[in-house]
Design a protein around this nucleic acid. Structure first.
Lengths: 191, 191
DNA sequence: ACAATAAGCGGAGGCGACTCCGCTTATGCA
DNA sequence: TGCATAAGCGGAGTCGCCTCCGCTTATTGT
């Protein structure tokens, strides 16, 4: 079993990603996949074989940039107190998701990924949040029982609803609310 | 300009809503609208004329139940302390949204409504949250600068992400986090 | 070089969303 | 009761999604 694609298939895949990046930027999130396949000079069947869902194509198209976003977390922690680094990163996250065409639509699928094609982005995001949250806890500024997974989901929810509402400011206010919740002492959480 | 539909149109609309409720329950959220139209004995054009988007049809189908959910808020406040009433209502909201087929998909459209077909549900939800939040503020348990609109959006975000993740528990944890954020004193919020 | 074959290709076809506009009919008025 | 007409109807048509499978070709071993 070959671990890498046949040479022609590899080239087709790269061409598809190139074209997708251009077409998403030019025509928005809901371009027809057939058009992307055509512009890449492959059949629609080839596109679907390589990227079974639209979300898979979007994730792969922006994977490098997602990685870069996630890698910025440690650098933010060097330059800011943990809570402010966390806030800054979440603001960047929202900007990124709302800017890259199709990305916020794909976000639920990316966050839900447990294995497979979209795993790379999902893991990078999880690790970035984990790092930021741990720093806040270590500094005594965030509650120790906060779960990185839950925080990532909360951020996902904030992104989704802000995107649907076309209200970027809403995201900032909800991020503040989230940080307040994470900063609150355990007292309020008892069931 | 007649304020009410012609008699036959009225009957068609009612039949569509009847059928939609049954078909959504029977076949889930992504049933074909053509099938609903057919089962109601009207053409697809008629369905679209009355309900221009799927979200409009879903909202109308569940409008009565949404109203009932919203009307429960004052009763919860009679029987529970404000914060617990708020929590209970939000839990009910999530259960409702995740139970009624198609409802969570329509939620973004409902929340974004400023006027038109879906306004009824949107306003009822806004008023319920307003009531609950005001009670918490009046009791000194929630921060006075909380915006009902933002809280409704936060709850919407929680519902969306929990639904996508198929994790009902996640919603409960995020509701707690939201309430913690709303309970936090202004100290943590300063920029 | 040259099979043998696994890997890959691609588009026809089936389905659903949504629009558009020529046809039908309920309604109100004389 | 009958006419004029606004209101409503509905399905053909267009487009995109996604699958399926018969055809093509890169690769590998000899």
């Amino acid at each position: 079993m070959p671990r890498s694609l046949r040479a022609d298939a590899q080239a087709n895949q790269e061409r598809l990603l190139d074209v997708a990046a251009r077409v998403f930027a030019r025509e928005g999130a809901d371009t027809s996949l057939k058009a992307i396949a055509a512009e890449a000079g492959v059949g629609i069947g080839t596109l679907y074989r390589r990227f079974p869902t639209r979300e898979d194509l979007v994730e792969a198209t922006y994977r490098n940039e997602t990685t870069r976003l996630c890698e910025s977390a440690p650098r933010l922690l060097e330059r800011h107190p943990p809570v402010e680094a966390f806030r800054a990163w979440m603001e960047d996250f929202v900007d990124y998701m709302l800017t890259k065409q199709g990305m916020s639509d794909a976000l639920p699928a990316i966050l839900a990924t447990r294995d497979g094609l979209r795993l790379h982005s999902r893991q990078a995001l999880g690790e970035a949040v984990e790092t930021l949250l741990a720093a806040g806890i270590a500094a005594g500024r965030l509650r120790a029982d906060g779960s990185a997974s839950d925080v990532l989901m909360a951020l996902g929810g904030i992104t989704l609803i802000s995107g649907h509402e076309h209200q970027r400011d809403l995201a900032s206010r909800l991020i503040s609310l989230l940080l307040d919740g994470l900063a609150s002492r355990a007292s309020a959480a008892a069931g």
